[in-house]
Amino acid sequence: MTRLLVLIMGALATVMFALIVLVIMPRTMLADIKAPEQLKPLSALEARGRQIYISNGCIYCHTQQVRDSNFTADVSKGLGNRPSVPADYVNDAPHLLGTMRTGPDLFNVGSRLPDQNWQLVHLYQPRALVPWSIMPAFPFLFEHKAKAGPNEKTLNLPPAYAPREGVVVVSKDAEAIVAYLLSLKHAYPAPGNDLTKEIAND
């Protein structure tokens, strides 16, 4: 029996140790972080857009983080004016940091590409605006109609990509995800309660 106890208790001890170090301790330490004043909570439309961003898997090609400028070129490539810090993400559940830059980083896309119409057309057909893009098109976020209804927004497409008849109408989902993208602006200075520095000074 002792053999089995060594195995089960030892196995549990190692994984619990890792849980404490990487999950429980950080949770307690990061609990003190407050949202910076300039970081606005998402509106209902933007929150819905965030959900669209998740359900269509944008994270598999886009990151939302600016890495430490000491050893990466993220800041010098214009992804942001400073590296991102934990306080920038306090409202995020789940996190959307991402692990791939098949497409560019979106942490500050709202400042970089603030034109709503550009974003909508780019979603409908990225290659209408960026010929070399390999981003998938999202035509299912739009409706193809003969005529737009009274309160519906139509899309201004270049002739090569416009449908032969009728109009392309922007759906609520498309509007929401663009609203979310445009809300991604983190130009404010890094907040003072930056834990990274605090720990380093310990």
Partner: peptide, 30 residues
């Protein structure tokens, strides 16, 4: 800091000591 707190030390001992004890028993029993 949290890492120094009594809770963490106690928790580590509770988790870490039993397997060590069983390991010693196992070694003693050949």
């Amino acid at each position: 800091m949290f890492a120094d707190s009594i809770a963490i030390i106690a928790l580590s001992l509770i988790i870490g000591l039993p397997p060590l004890i069983f390991l010693l028993i196992g070694v003693r029993h050949g």
